[in-house]
Design a protein around this nucleic acid. Structure first.
Lengths: 123, 123
DNA sequence: ATTTAATACCTAATAATCCTATGTATTAAA
DNA sequence: TTTAATACATAGGATTATTAGGTATTAAAT
């Protein structure tokens, strides 16, 4: 039985924007730290987005008009909420489709079968 | 209907070693140019490995003892054949398993279904 | 009461890995 | 004879992540 604790960063590279936009699309507004925790949780610790990767990505997405921000104060602590824009919704659909297409190609190329249903339950 | 002509390099990034080793494992000895053409062919032009990416990767794999080379002359033209080593076979199994695991996680995260059978036929 | 862990933001330096462009050279096709 | 295909290779630049560092608040543990 193969056990993988965490994926090599090379694999995640290139999917971060897709993951973030998809989460924002499904879960509504979220703040940065929340995104890292949610992804960690959803993937059983297999994908752990570092803050050094996340924040520059969020800033880039904002610059490109794919997310919008609003700052909120929880006591004295600042929290920056991100919301997906109309443009972001277009982008995320394209990116998810591209990734699915890519996975199908890789599946064929590597000659492997994927699970039909997922055993992960913490959704 | 979604149509993708070619994948963004970001996606392929991180899978190149896996693709190359898997091909060498399945198809026996191959030379660099042959690898680029075979991948292009198998993926219906969707994955086009550039030479600037392939050769450094092959040299790295050789340096790491995962492939071995033998030079052959076809007329006056040189051809460098690559063969997978015992170590390379271990690595490729690990990498393919990791990638399959990663795809299952992403499939769950992006909430998508993949094709059960592939329509691609040129195998 | 104080230290540690968790929450919450951010950036700079570095590393990895790819693409583009370029170079060389042979062989086949137009 | 020129162009396209075959076949190798590397240098420079781009992208995108990690590591490591910084600041600050709040909750939990000692």
């Amino acid at each position: 039985m193969y056990i993988c604790l965490m994926y090599s960063s090379e694999l995640i590279k290139g999917t971060l924007k897709t993951i973030v936009l998809k989460l924002l699309k499904e879960q509504g507004k979220m703040y940065g730290y929340e995104i890292t925790q949610r992804v960690k949780e959803l993937t059983n610790d297999k994908i752990q987005i570092t803050e050094g990767a996340l924040y520059p990505t969020l800033h880039l997405l904002e610059k490109n008009g794919e997310v919008e921000t609003e700052t909120e104060f929880i006591g004295k602590r600042v929290r920056k909420y991100y919301t997906i824009t109309k443009q972001g919704r277009i982008t995320v659909d394209l990116k998810v489709n591209e990734f699915v297409d890519f996975m199908n190609t890789m599946k064929f190329l590597l000659d492997v079968e994927l699970k039909v249903s997922n055993v992960q339950s913490n959704r």
